[in-house]
Amino acid sequence: MFSNRLVNILIPTISVFLGLLVGAFIMLGFGYNPLTGYLSLWEGAFGDSYFFGETLRQVTPYILSGLAVAFAFRTGLFNIGVEGQVIMGWLASVWVGLAIDAPMIIHLPLVIIAAALAGAAWGFLPGLLKAKLGVHEVIVTIMMNYIALYTSNALVRNIISDGQDRTDRIPETASLTSEWLAALTQYSRLHYGLLIALFAAAIMWFILNQTTRGYELRSVGFNQDASRYAGMNVGRNIILSMVISGAFAGLAGAMEGIGTFGYQSVKGGFTNIGFDGIAVALLGGNAAIGVVLAALLFGTLKVGALNMPTGAGVPTELVDIVIAMIIFFVASSYMIRWFLLKMKKEGK
């Protein structure tokens, strides 16, 4: 009745449904009409072309940060440091954008590569420590997040700008903004980055599923000892996985740096792009196509939520609760699997 493939699709679907259900009950409990609530969320995400453009803009970094988390997951690594790598990628894209003067055909690729390299560098250290000394990557990457935040703030304030709270805007030659896309969506902040994100998803699929290296990476994720016994260099694969994951995260930062905002500012806290990426990757089952779909969902929820206070009087934070519950249900998929299995037995 339920094939493995079907279960893999059913679990995220059921989790999303349960998460939305919890949200509906909370709305009900506080005297809101859940239907009006979710309708205004839908309106806020797809109501007109401006909202749709903003939703796609939000989806763009989510795809990349989701890919970053997912890629590391496939090698058995949990990269919580995506947040810090996003910040460093953001910083690098803006910094290189401001520092260099070149025609767009050179400038733009340079800026994007810089962002990927910065993210990769931030992922390299936890990878190295994991591979050489067996230090758990979760703690190191959490620490790296804070180091990234404070370092970026100090650089923005003291080096890139002159004691300002934000850098100058990057020149047009380093920018992903698009007159055409903006005009198409009633001047939303939608930019060409979406294409980069989709391309990156294709790259991830290609690396993992079509190359020997990808086979090794996944193999290390399944069983390190067996991989070592088969003659693979586990340490090198771990480092490589963290570096590629960091590069994706750095690109996610570039989407904000040279796409949405055009500058880097002194941040009081995290961007949450990286942390939301964990949710995206989990829901997307750590596969490229799943990540794209999950990013679409979370982007919709996040942007649509902004319309909920005006549309239905519901605080936007309701969506954060819904997202938390979705993660919780996906993580507890053992329960859902067990339930499906039971249904299967009774169905026979």
Binding site: F275, L318, D320, I321, V330, A331, S332, Y334
Partner: peptide, 21 residues
């Protein structure tokens, strides 16, 4: 039997969302 790190991440999201809501 959820991944403990993931469940912890969910707790972080949930607490902040609930508190602010």
């Amino acid at each position: 039997r959820a991944d403990q790190v993931v469940s912890g991440v969910a707790i972080n999201f949930l607490a902040l969302g609930l508190g602010l809501f």
